[in-house]
Simulated scan of single mutants.
Amino acid sequence: MEVNYPLTTWLKLMLLTLVWGSSFMLIKKGLIIYTPTEVAALRLASAAAVLAPFALMRLNRIKGKQWWVLLSVGMTGSLLPAFLFAFAQTQLDSGLTGALNALTPLFTLIVGALMFSQWVSRRTVIGLSIGFAGTVILVTVQGNGDFSLNVYALFIVIATICYAVNLNFIKNYLPNLSPVTITGVSLLMVLPVALLYLLGPSDIGAKLSGDVQAWWSLLAILTLGMLGTALALILFNHLVQIASAIFASSVTYLIPIVAVTLGMLDGEVVSLYQVAGMALILFGVWSANRQPAVPPAHPNPVADQAQDKH
């Protein structure tokens, strides 16, 4: 049955799209001054700081083996992707990165099928195949049309696999914990890694004392962490509550549009090959996540876990 959502719900979806879609440009601006490891560490530290008060109040809700699961969530949902995205964008345009990020729901379906025996329909397999065809184009075809393997694009592919593992762990092992608890506590658990680097070998203090641009780059990274990583997740799960997971996950299709548009406004050039690859990925994601007619004997596939968590 078709549902008509109020204007405020659509505005919240657009806000989430702008926040997550602009994350790749914020990484790009942070890399003007800071190294990839500094960008990743600052992003994690600022996100953890925003959610720390909420996480500390919820520590007593964590039971037994949930601690190990939360550590895995922190690693696959925050720590590894933060570094992978930062290193990838030293050689990739922000728009292309945003398009590749749309692979997350495809890998979520694959991980769910391989690790948790979730049923995958023929329609889903076709969608996955289309999405992978688009991925091959983006990973092997350069902006000028030349064919060569882009290793840095593979970093984004690995990051989306990490997101997929993270989403499946949350769905299967942490069904009784709230999203704020999961995100806040998991970020606190990986925060020491970021702090050890920031307080040790990083050169952030010297950069801030010698260049005004360093402060603007720092602002971009802090905005990325506080808004793009921490608060955006709260907004996403708010949409799930007031609308539906399927409606909220439609942000997956809108993020690349924002990322590519901002990239072009910043002087990035998008070739026809890359447009074709992006289109195939988005069409594949849409096809794979359509609600199939699932036999009652099988669990519903992980179609509602289609969000990008940077």
Rank of each mutant, 00 (worst) to 15 (best):
V258Y: 03
V258I: 14
A259H: 04
A259E: 01
A259Y: 07
V260F: 03
T261P: 02
T261A: 15
G263A: 06
G263E: 03
M264P: 00
M264K: 10
M264V: 15
M264C: 11
L265P: 06
L265T: 08
D266Q: 11
G267M: 10
E268W: 07
E268T: 12
E268D: 14
E268H: 10
E268R: 05
E268Y: 05
V269C: 02
V269T: 14
V270D: 04
S271W: 00
S271P: 07
S271F: 00
S271D: 01
S271V: 04
S271A: 03
L272D: 13
L272E: 13
Y273C: 02
Y273L: 04
Q274S: 12
Q274H: 15
Q274P: 01
Q274C: 03
Q274V: 00
V275F: 12
A276V: 06
M278I: 14
M278F: 09
M278K: 11
A279P: 02
L280V: 04
L280T: 01
I281H: 05
I281K: 08
I281G: 09
I281M: 12
I281W: 01
L282M: 12
L282S: 06
F283R: 06
F283H: 06
F283M: 14
G284S: 09
G284H: 06
V285R: 05
V285A: 13
W286D: 05
S287E: 10
S287N: 12
A288K: 08
A288D: 03
N289K: 10
N289V: 07
N289W: 00
